[in-house]
Design a binder for these strands. Sequence first.
DNA 1: CTGAAAGCGCTTACAG
DNA 2: CTGAAAGCGCTTACAG
Lengths: 334, 334
Amino acid sequence: MSRRPTILDVAARAGVSKSTVSLVLQNSAQVKAETREAVRAAMAEIGYVYNRAAAQMRSQTAGLVGLVINDLRNPFFTEFATVLQMTLAAKGYATVIANSDEDPDLQAKLIGSMIEHGVSALVVSPAYDDAGDAFDQIARAGIPAMQVLRKTDPRTGLFPFASFDYAAGSALATRHLLDQGAKRIAFVGGMEGRAITEERKSGYLAELKRAGIAPFTHHGRSSRAFGVEAVNNLPDDVDAAVCFNDLVALGMLSGFARAGVELGRDFRLVGFDDIEDCAQVWPLVSSIGCDIESFAQDVADGLLAWMQTGETPPPEHRAPVELIARTSSTGTID
Amino acid sequence: MSRRPTILDVAARAGVSKSTVSLVLQNSAQVKAETREAVRAAMAEIGYVYNRAAAQMRSQTAGLVGLVINDLRNPFFTEFATVLQMTLAAKGYATVIANSDEDPDLQAKLIGSMIEHGVSALVVSPAYDDAGDAFDQIARAGIPAMQVLRKTDPRTGLFPFASFDYAAGSALATRHLLDQGAKRIAFVGGMEGRAITEERKSGYLAELKRAGIAPFTHHGRSSRAFGVEAVNNLPDDVDAAVCFNDLVALGMLSGFARAGVELGRDFRLVGFDDIEDCAQVWPLVSSIGCDIESFAQDVADGLLAWMQTGETPPPEHRAPVELIARTSSTGTID
DNA sequence: CTGAAAGCGCTTACAG
DNA sequence: CTGAAAGCGCTTACAG
């Protein structure tokens, strides 16, 4: 039990040269099947473990992908991270995951650390208010990197942006609420001025304009807590709401439950993202479904192609969304 | 813009030898402050990026920690993973995170990959039904590794186990429900026979025995969906429940809301884990608080000590838990 | 299809 | 406090 065995030990054991062992490790077709088997057997016998650091140093590629997320505790991002990690793992890439916790300085540090670790590519759902350091760093390192779900760097040629068609989503939600007979619809949640808030609001505003109804927006944090409080901060004539996201909608659901207001009858609600909870609370919460699983897979596939063939993903990709109408907006039970 | 600069380029620029540059990189005290500054300046000027693969190869340490989680989508584990990652990042370690999705084969592959990447330590919340491959692999590699929240390998000397004092938790919950006047208390959720289920059940069984009341257990998956259905599968005289976890409790909450049963009055409920949602749904859900944030920090600290000083954590650590009584069991509003 | 040689970018004793 | 030299374990042309 001295040191870990190396390819030299494997070579000695199998009676071949170390180059041959290296070729076997890379599944090269130029090694005879028989030789390959002998080498594999030798590896198993002596308990050889591939040393990626050495390989990485020589070949300049680590089989490592970095993922930096602004809020990893948000189930929407967790699901994204999980599917991305699993898809990449299936292709032989390990994923270094980090939560920037909406902190641009931490984000810059994390990205720097990942670059040092030699990640082959990065996926970033960026914190807002970044001074540009994060992506400048990546640009200097010349690593393929994508912006997902949030865009903070305008260089989408360099850092392609992938997200959902949020404007279409809120338009769908608004039209649906009007169809259900809503007279005055509020838009609740989301920090004013942020790109994602404005996108999600734009479809709502467009539909209301078309219907000749005045909008009412109540902005704020995208949390359950904000949703709970929002219930008490709406004008009396508001009888429906499009929420910035499901967390806000779920918070409003709790607030209304507490206040004895029956959702789907006294008030109509549509969330955004269709996280799992929407179908598991009562009343069931209508939402704009963003198929995060397919989205994460698409991102993974695009990234793999980029790393392997050099083919850059399109500068902007908008995944389709759909309305999932449930009790909170229809009042019907299923 | 040819290749990335190396310490040789930095040395040339700063007018020192490459050893000096290396020492500066390691914050060695033997370099004069003045020299250090000159070297740092040179690095910044030429855009030097530390190459960890090379360092790792020579020093045999990567500054990388592996985290393998059986279900990364579960908010309890997400929180754990997030805090662990952030604590390690603050100490200069990057974290490779992977979701084994309860699949022992995938788990073995992921651990193998992490070992190849040269992780300095591993933290595993293992999938059940592992044939032992996972930890055997780690044992062979001789890497510090901890089992957290679930124990599947009995070698706690080699793989220390850290978790919460679950038995005390369910005893607390049961006693509390009895104090509230519950006559017949069920234990709902958790797969029968699994260590964690049996632990969480043991305190419940002990308290009921003490009170001379017959237990009623309804086992099953630890999901909201199971909780929703469980509501319809309890004997009529059951008027309270200790749930295996909060997901089950939240599912039951939805089920009762749908059935028009008022929690805290018609039925009393205590969950387990005290995830964020408990305080944000309505009625508020009582739960056994497991301070996952402190726990994750303790695990991180223990692991850092182990890596740095070789001091092994205790074979078994049980973090204390507390009862958080809320509306679902007390019927009172705050 | 296989072998001998060079080199990836660092760290680590060792001399000075 | 600083410099010259060896070597970590692979991959990569290049010969054969």
